[in-house]
Design a protein around this nucleic acid. Sequence first.
DNA 1: TTGAAAGCGTTACCAT
DNA 2: ATGGTAACGCTTTCAA
Lengths: 329, 329
Amino acid sequence: MADVARLAGVSSMTVSRALRADAPASEETRKKIREAADQLGYVLNSTAAGLSSRKTGFVAVTIPSINNSNFADTVRGLTDGLNSLNIQVLLGYTDYDADIEEKHIESMLRRRPEAIVVTGGAHTPRARRLMSNAGIPVIEMWDLPDSPIGHVVGFSNRETSRTMCQRLHDKGYRRIGFIGGASSRDTRGADRRRGYEEAMRELGCEPRVTAYGDPPITMRQGGGALAEMLETWPDIDAVLCVSDLSAFGALSECRRRGLQVPGDIAIAGFGNYDLAECAVPSLTTVEVHAEDIGRRVAELVREQLSGETDNRDHVTSLIPFEIIERESA
Amino acid sequence: MADVARLAGVSSMTVSRALRADAPASEETRKKIREAADQLGYVLNSTAAGLSSRKTGFVAVTIPSINNSNFADTVRGLTDGLNSLNIQVLLGYTDYDADIEEKHIESMLRRRPEAIVVTGGAHTPRARRLMSNAGIPVIEMWDLPDSPIGHVVGFSNRETSRTMCQRLHDKGYRRIGFIGGASSRDTRGADRRRGYEEAMRELGCEPRVTAYGDPPITMRQGGGALAEMLETWPDIDAVLCVSDLSAFGALSECRRRGLQVPGDIAIAGFGNYDLAECAVPSLTTVEVHAEDIGRRVAELVREQLSGETDNRDHVTSLIPFEIIERESA
DNA sequence: TTGAAAGCGTTACCAT
DNA sequence: ATGGTAACGCTTTCAA
C-alpha cells in the first residue's frame, strides 16, 4: 500500500480510503490511486485490514454435510444474502459429529468471524461455551432447539413427520412404516422419527420403524431398509422416509420387486430434492424452503451487525414447511 | 494473550509457543498455559497470527456450483487432505460465470491464501493476471487447460465422451444423440460435447445434438431435452447426456412415454452420481473420481508449500476416468 | 479531503 | 526453554 501511495503521490492513508467505497476521497485521487494500484498489481490485504478494524468480513457456518442438496441450498441463500454486505462464509462440515463440530467451531472462532451459524441445537458443552463467550451473534438453524444459545431460524422436524403421517392417514393408509438412520447423530432425522412415533400413537396405529445405517442414510440404504421392512412387516401399506434420497432408494427397490407405488406401497420423503419431482412416480415430500432458511439467517446477521435489533434479544424465525403431494402417496 | 501470560506468570511469547505444537516449550509450562487459557476462555486470534507469520492457513478454491455432488466430492477430498496441514478451504462458487469467478478470486486473494485452486481453464484475463501475480501455487482442476497458469489436476472431458461413444458404437448403437447445455459457459460440458462430435465423425455417424438450457442442466431439463430430441430425430437409438442428472431426467421422460431403456433407447450419463447406481434401470456413466481429484490437489498443495518440489515446475496430474457399464446402455 | 501517529494481536528474530 | 523487541499491513483517531 505504501508503494501505491508513493506512485500516486499521496499518503497510504489516502490509498486506504480511496480503496473503500464509503470513506471520503475525491474522485480524482480515487482514480489516480486505482490506476497506481492496477499498475503495481496491488491487492488489498484484508488480513491486516481485519486486524486493524476488528471486522474480518467472515461469518462462520457449520453444516452436517456438504454433499446434501438441502444444506447446499441453505448455504447458497446465506452466501447470496451476505454478499451485499461484503461478508464471506467460512464453511465447515461436521459429518453429523458433535466433536468434529466443536473442532470446526474453535478453529473458525480463531478467525474472528462476525457471527457464527450452526446447524441444529446439539453441541458439545465446550462448543456451547465457545460460542456463548465469543461475543458475536450465534444462530442455530434447521431446527428448534430446546435451549437455544442465541437466535434460531428453523422449523420443527417433528411437526413435519406428524403432518405427513396425518396426511397419509387421511388418505387411508394405516400400516405406515418409517425408514431412518440407526443412530441419533442426525438429530433432525431423529426428530422426524419421533414425530412419526407420536403421530402413530395419536392415530392409533402401530409404529413400525426400520433403522438402517449411519447418517446420512443414502439412496442405496433406503433400498436396503425397504427390503428389511418388508421382511418384518409384509403388510405395510405406506413408508415415510427420513429423506428423499432414502425414499428414492425405497422406490427403486419397489420397482425391482415389481411392487406398485402407490398401490402396493405408498412412499413419502423429505426435503423436496429435484429428484422427488423427477422420479417416476414423483415423490410426495416435505418442502422446507432450505434456501429461505439461509436467506433469513443472512438477514438476521445483517440486522444484528448493523445494531438494528438488540443483540440480547433472542430472535426465533419459524420457516414454514409444506407437504408436496405427488404421485407416490 | 497478554492476559493469559500474566495469569500463567510467563511472557506472551511463551504463551504463543506453548499454544503451537511445534514450538519449543516445556510440558510443565504448556500445561500451566493451557489451563490459564481455558480459564479465561481465550481463543487464539489467527488473523493476527497470519499477519505476523505470513501464513494464513487458507487455500482458496472456486467451484462452479456448490449444489453438485461431483464438486462437493472434490471439495471433500481437498478439505480432508488439507486438514492434517491445519489449512482451511475458503470456498467460492461461480455459477459457471467467469466474471463471478474473477470477483471471487480477487476477494479471496485479499485474504492471502497460501495457494489457489480453480475449476477449469477458462478465466477472464484479469483473473489470470491476478492469479499469476499472487506469488502462490495456482492449481487448475477438473480439466486439462490448453495454456495452464500453474499446476493441473484433471482429465480430458473430451476423451470421456469419445470413449463413451466408442463403447456405445461397439454395442451396436448408431443413431446416437447428445444432450447438453445451450451455452458454452460450462466449459467442461462443452468439451464433452466436442468429444461426442469428434467421435461421431470418426465413427461415420451423424451428430445429433440437443442443446437445452443454461448450465447446470437439471434433471427436469434432461427430460425436456429428450422430448425435443425425439421430435427432431424420432429414430434415435441412444443418448449420451452431459451429466447423470440430465440422463436421469431423460430416463424418467422415457418411462413416462412408455419407452424401454435400453431397447427403445439407450441412455448414458456422466459423473457416476449415487443416482446412477440406484436408478431403475441403473445408468451407464463415467466415473471421474471427483474425490481423488481433491485429494491429489491437496497433496500437490502440500508438496508445493513444503518446498519438496520446485514451484516453477508445472505439474500435471492426470486422474484416470472409467466407463461404468450398467443397465441403461 | 488529506495526513501523521498509534495501535490491532500475533510471531520472527535475536538474546539470554 | 524463555523473554524482549520489532515488525506484519492495515485502520482508527485526531489534527490540519
